[in-house]
Simulated scan of single mutants.
Amino acid sequence: MRHWLALIILFYTFLNFLIGRQIYGLLKVNKFVFWPVFIILAASPMLGRFGVKALGLIGNFWIVFFYYAAFVAVLGLIVKHKPVIIGCYVIIFLAILYGYGHAKDIQIAHYDLKLPRVAQELHIVMLADIHLDQDKDKGYVAKMVRQINALNPDLVFLVGDIFDDRDVNLLYQEKETFKQIKSQYGVYGVLGNHEYYTGHLDEILKIFKEANIRILRDEVTETAGLYIVGREDASRRQRKPLTDLLKGVDRAKPIILLDHQPVALNEAEQAGVNLQLSGHTHRGQFFPNQLITHRIYEDDYGYLSKGGLQVIVSSGYGTWGPPVRIGTQSEIVDIKINR
C-alpha cells in the first residue's frame, strides 16, 4: 500500500512539474515568485486535508484544474503551437467557472414506477451524497429541506454520504434544520462510506436520531404497506447477507432496498427486492469520469430494470471535493409509485 501511495505522489509531482513548466513558459514571470506560489497550489489538496482550512477550498478547485491541465501539459510535449495551449487553458478556466455554477443548480429527476403488490400510491423523494461539510455554502441544508418539502413527499430516503466532515459540530448545528423535513411516513436513511471516514460515527448516529432521521443499519422496517431495507455500506465487510435480512418478511408486500453503493444487484434481484435506491457514483461528477463509472457499475446512473428488480441510481445532491459539475447534474430524485 505504501509503495502504491509513493508512486501516486511521484506521478502527481511529475505531472505538476510539467504543468508548472508549461504555464511558466507561457507567463514568463519572475521564477522566484512563480514557483513558490505554484508549489503551494499544487500541494493545496493535501494541505487542505491535513487541516490547513484556508487551502481546503483552493485545493478542491486545484484538483479539477490539475485533472484537465495534465492533459494539456502532455499535449504540449507534442504540440508546440502556443495559441493552442493558451486556448486550452482558457477553456479549462471557463469550464471550471461553469461547473461551479452548474453544481448549485439542483434539478428534479422524475420517475414513475409500478411496484407489484403495493397497497397505495406513494410519493418518494430520495437524495444521495449530500456531503455536508465546512466548504458548503451557508444555508445549504436549509435550501435542501425547502426543496424536499416543496415536493410534499410521503417518504424521504437519504441514501448515504449525508455528512462528510471531521467536525461533528457542523452536523449538530444543522440538526434542527434537518428536523424540518416534512414527510407523512418519515425520513429514513443509510450510511455511506464517508460517514465512517469522519471518525465520529456514534455522535453522527445520535444527531441523526435526534433529527428524526432513522438510519437503518442492516435493518428492515415496515411502513406504508411496504418494507424498507437499509444495508450497511458495501465497504463494511461484516454487513449481513440480504437473505438473512429478509427472513420472515411478508412476501405479499413490496420491498424497497436502500444501499449507498449500486452494487450486488444480482443479490438484490435473487432476494426478491422490488426497488433498489443508491447513489455513491456522482456519475463521475465531471467529464469524462462518467465514462469510467459507466464501466465500473452495472448501473452508474438512472434507471435499470433487472428481472423483477428495478434500480435507480442518483448522481447526488451535492459534490465531493471540488464543488464543480461538468457533464453531470446535481439532483433530487422524485419517485411516484403507482399501483
Rank of each mutant, 00 (worst) to 15 (best):
I292E: 00
K179P: 02
D259H: 02
Y98D: 05
F157M: 13
P322A: 15
D250Q: 07
W320Y: 14
F287M: 11
I337C: 09
I86S: 10
F66V: 06
F71T: 00
I63V: 14
N274R: 08
G87W: 04
F208C: 08
R236K: 14
I96G: 13
V273G: 06
V156T: 10
L191Y: 11
D105M: 12
R237F: 08
E210N: 12
I130R: 09
R283I: 07
I19F: 03
A234Q: 03
A6N: 10
V84Y: 14
M46P: 07
I85T: 14
Q290M: 15
V156S: 09
Q310T: 10
P83Y: 10
Y24I: 05
Q261D: 08
Q173K: 15
K136E: 01
A54Q: 15
L171C: 10
T198N: 05
S315H: 10
W35S: 05
E269S: 14
A6R: 13
G48P: 12
A119M: 13
V90E: 04
L158G: 00
A42F: 05
D202W: 14
I86K: 13
E174L: 02
I130W: 12
G327L: 12
E331W: 10
K53W: 11
L57P: 14
H194L: 00
D133H: 01
V33S: 03
I207C: 13
D167Y: 00
I85K: 07
L216F: 10
I326R: 14
M1K: 14
V125T: 14
Y67P: 00
F34N: 05
D154A: 04
I108S: 04
A150E: 15
D299P: 04
K240P: 08
P36G: 08
G56V: 07
I213A: 08
F50N: 15
V52F: 15
E269V: 09
V273S: 04
G76D: 04
